[in-house]
Design a protein around this nucleic acid. Structure first.
Length: 721
DNA sequence: GTGCCTCGAGTTCC
DNA sequence: CTCGAGGCAC
């Protein structure tokens, strides 16, 4: 398994165009290395910068070649094979599928008032009066897992889980074993993606658990987990044995429309052979929606399967189209959720955690209890006011009921996920209990913990000297979206931070690790949990990240108010580290050319600007950053200003809501293509890009006879550039 | 000034 | 996932 650098480059170069069945083992191996690198780079560009640097077709070609080589030389398949990992947080074992149309989530409503607001927001957006007719569909929200089924020429060709909405897991083989899912369709559109929910009925769940128990296998906590576990079996024959069902309720890519209304589309899906939920109805006003919700809630226990609310959708598909999407949810649908399950338990202690920005977060340690099918032992307490029973405005939310250690507290899972405390049983409180006193000092470093006026959060003022902040900052530094160093996650950071012989105390230390290991007798490769291989691998992974785009470096620094998006905006503005660094060094907060330049950037306000300048001018912090940058090869984020693009030299105005990119991003793209972006329409405007909800500006453009296009038209226009 | 809409930060469990 | 708050359009 030895290979020299020379073998590698020769192999890869010579092999790239060779037919797979003609490849030598060495060539195949070298090419797998090359493909893994290329695919990983493409994934990173696609996922974290939203700027794919190769076309989808080229990407697919790379993937296909990788798969072919792996198929012919299975013994060469790398543990980090790109065929098994695209994106992150998606488990191994299934191929990955990029959804042709993103699978979105739904906005939630927790009471009647929020449903009324939803209706009014839609009317406002569409310019409809309160009395104008506006129909909705209402259907139970099945508590299972969503699945997208792709049919081509009436044949099921692919089934994919939701994943992160963009990339899901390919579970086609398993979907083919589910009786409710037709394998062929008659009279369907050429391309049809049907979306719906895989679930398990109560009766089937009970029988399955009984069977599992009898066989000595593990039982499932609830039908949802059972459905999820069953669909994600590596062996489809196991899935076949599991009683899974499917309700269709939506669609993705279509070659032709299914109907003109949501209700009609559901009927069409039913006619094509899908199960659709019989409790789906069309209603004409919010009062009827709420009545239907109450009716379904009353029948909830008798349905025979779990539901967690009712989904309302605007019925008219043309209106759905006009309403469009926000970044992660459609404007035309909402999930009216049932009240969360509640459980009482004892609060045994309140601990304080210190975050990377120094925020002190109180955490409730609870006597473990099952809530909504999961055992909960921790819950966030947010801040001092929350413990005292006040909301962010200082208004009392649990009158006279502050939260104390030893109290019986009522726990629920917000959004069915995050455990929270809703209430305190005042009657069961012991006479000796005392109100919780929020610490005035950081529990980790002892520095004063300040709560700024108007702020809800205490922050440790220790900065770099606080070990908790330093560790959290380092964890952020190596996280996904930042340096993302393989083999150096949160756990390893904890270990290296505590290490005396080969410590990592600040980011720069990561990049001197290999050199220090060389000079040190206490080699990493002799440690527990580390062998020669893993140590070498870690050093190689670190080495790989010395070259880093400016945007990622900025994000990795963990400067307050500067997240992924802000970092990308700043990076494309200054383009290089020296330019950024010089501007930050010269800037004065609230004044001067550098300050005006910084705050003039679209998406950068005074708060973010001040945070940047303060950090870059703070002596200790700056020294640490300089030590880091000295170790790196920071790549510039140059704007490629094209002078031959279709919009070069033109003045463009964006109005209304942009759905496929943020405003700041659209502006940056336009400017990169040589266009000037203005805020208002005038005779000098050449082009107006109007999204849904566009008002006076779009009208003015029409009056002035200025060319107006929608977002898709805009993307088509710049797509070729 | 107000009212969205996004983004950032912090959080839990499997 | 949620909350708060920054930033921008109106």
């Amino acid at each position: 398994m030895r290979e020299t650098e020379q073998d590698k480059s020769q192999g890869a170069g010579a092999a790239a165009d060779t037919a797979v069945d003609q490849l030598s083992v060495a060539q195949a191996q070298a090419e797998l290395v090359r493909l893994a690198g290329a695919l990983a780079a493409a994934n990173r560009a696609y996922h974290t910068e939203d700027a794919p640097d190769i076309s989808d077709a080229a990407y697919d070609a790379l993937k296909r070649r990788n798969a072919e080589i792996e198929k012919r030389f299975p013994e060469l398949k790398r543990p980090d094979s790109p065929s098994e990992q695209v994106g992150a947080a998606v488990s191994d074992g299934f191929g990955k599928v990029r959804h042709a149309v993103r699978m979105l989530s739904l906005e939630n409503a927790f009471d009647d008032e929020e449903v009324t607001e939803f209706d009014q927001r839609i009317r406002r957006f569409l310019g409809l009066s309160d009395g104008a007719p506006l129909g909705y569909t209402a259907e139970p929200k099945i508590d299972g897992l969503s699945l997208s089924l792709r049919y081509e020429s009436g044949r099921l060709v692919q089934a994919a889980t939701r994943g992160d909405g963009e990339v899901g897991e390919n579970v086609t083989a398993n979907a083919l074993t589910i009786a409710d899912i037709p394998q062929t369709l008659a009279g369907a559109p050429e391309i049809l993606e049907v979306r719906g929910e895989v679930y398990m009925s109560h009766a089937d769940f009970a029988a399955l658990n009984a069977r599992q128990e009898a066989a000595g296998g593990k039982t499932f906590a609830n039908p949802r987990n059972a459905a999820a576990g069953s669909l994600r079996q590596l062996d489809p024959e196991i899935t076949r044995d599991r009683p899974l069902r499917f309700f269709a309720y939506a669609w993705g890519e279509l070659s032709e429309p299914l109907a003109t209304a949501q209700m009609g589309a559901i009927k069409r899906l039913s006619q094509l052979g899908f199960q659709t939920n019989p409790l789906t109805v069309r209603l004409d006003c919010t009062a009827d929606l709420i009545r239907h919700y109450e009716d379904i809630e009353a029948r909830r226990a008798t349905l025979g399967y779990d539901i967690d609310g009712v989904v309302y959708k605007v019925d008219d598909l043309r209106l759905q189209e006009r309403l469009g999407f926000r970044s992660t949810t459609p404007r035309w649908a909402i999930a009216h959720k049932f009240p969360a399950e509640l459980a009482w338990t004892v609060l045994e202690a309140i601990d304080i955690q210190v975050g990377r920005t120094g925020a002190l977060s109180p955490v409730a340690r609870l006597r473990p209890i099952t809530v909504g099918g999961v055992v909960v032992s921790n819950a966030t307490l947010h801040n001092e006011d929350y413990i005292a029973g006040r909301d962010s405005n200082g208004a009392l939310i649990r009158e006279g009921r502050d939260i104390r250690v030893g109290d019986w507290v009522q726990v629920y899972r917000a959004g069915d996920v995050i455990p929270k405390i809703k209430d305190v049983d005042f009657a069961r409180r012991s006479a000796e209990s005392k109100p919780y006193i929020f610490p005035q000092h950081c529990p980790e470093c002892g520095s004063v913990a300040l709560r700024e006026p108007g702020d809800a959060i205490h922050r440790c003022t220790g900065g770099l000297i606080c070990p908790a902040q330093a560790v959290e900052k380092l964890k952020h530094f190596v996280s996904r979206g930042a340096f993302d160093i393989e083999g150096l996650g949160a756990k390893q950071i904890e270990m290296f931070f505590a290490d005396d012989l080969l410590p990592i105390r600040e980011p720069a230390d990561i990049f001197t690790l290999a050199a220090r290991d060389q000079a040190n007798l206490a080699k990493l490769s002799n440690r527990d949990g580390f062998g020669e291989r893993s140590a070498k691998k870690l050093f190689a992974a670190i080495e790989e990240r010395r070259r880093i785009p400016l945007s990622k470096l900025l994000f990795a620094l963990g400067i307050r108010h500067l997240g992924e998006t802000g970092s990308a905006i700043i990076a494309t503005h200054y383009e290089t580290w020296p330019a950024f660094e010089a501007a930050m060094t010269a800037a004065q907060i609230g004044d001067g050319a550098e300050w005006d330049d910084l705050t003039g950037i679209d998406g950068v306000g005074a708060v973010m600007a001040a945070s940047l300048v303060t950090t870059m001018q703070q002596e200790a912090e700056r020294a640490s950053i300089d030590r880091l940058v000295a170790q790196l090869d920071v790549q510039e984020s140059r704007r490629v200003v094209a002078d031959d693009s279709p919009v070069a030299g033109k003045t463009i105005v964006f109005t209304g809501t942009l759905e496929k990119m943020s405003r700041a991003e659209a502006k940056a793209r336009a400017e990169a293509l040589g266009a000037k972006v203005a805020g208002s329409v005038s005779a000098k405007t050449d082009l107006v890009v109007a999204g849904p909800g566009a008002g006076s500006k779009a009208k003015k453009a029409v009056d002035l006879g200025i060319e107006t296009i929608d977002e898709d038209g805009w993307l088509a226009l710049i797509g070729g550039a």
